[in-house]
């Protein structure tokens, strides 16, 4: 069973989440639904600090035993920090996708983009549709 989607953040249709820190930065990761679809995550490729990404562009790569998946940045920004713990324990993404399994922290370059994202309720609906 998926964990419920926290209401303190926004979601992309590609199954990433973004949590606005209120100081011009945001933390991003993949959703619990996404980790459940991927199952056994064994590798996470993190972006270099300082990398600039546009909304919807690949910012990281998550690999399960069988598959390689891009993580698309839900907002445009510059990478300020990455979750180095995932280099040794990528399974944290499976265990706690919304918490310990965060992927990167970005300096947001266009806060307006947040308006294009889904809230928790809308994202719930999207994943319910995909399951059926």
């Amino acid at each position: 069973m998926s964990k419920s989607n926290p209401t303190d953040r926004l979601y992309s249709k590609d199954h990433e989440w973004v949590k606005d820190q209120g100081d011009g930065t945001a933390v991003i990761g993949i959703t619990d639904y996404a980790q459940e679809m991927l199952t056994d995550i064994v590798f996470v490729e993190l972006p270099p600090i300082g990398k600039k990404v546009a909304q919807g562009e690949p910012v990281a790569v998550v690999e399960s035993v069988k598959s390689v998946s891009d993580v698309y940045s839900p907002v445009s920004g510059e990478v300020m920090d990455v979750n180095k713990t995932l280099e040794e324990t990528p399974e944290l993404v499976n265990q706690d996708a919304f918490g310990e399994g965060w992927i990167a922290k970005l300096k947001i370059t266009n806060a307006d983009e947040l308006k294009s994202l889904l809230n928790a309720t809308a994202y719930d609906t999207l994943t319910q549709e995909e399951k059926h």
């Binding site: 199952t39 056994d40 064994v42 399960s64 035993v65 069988k66």
Partner: peptide, 11 residues
Amino acid sequence: PVQYTNVIDEH
């Protein structure tokens, strides 16, 4: 079937 639970567990 590619997996029932997950690949690592079945492996």
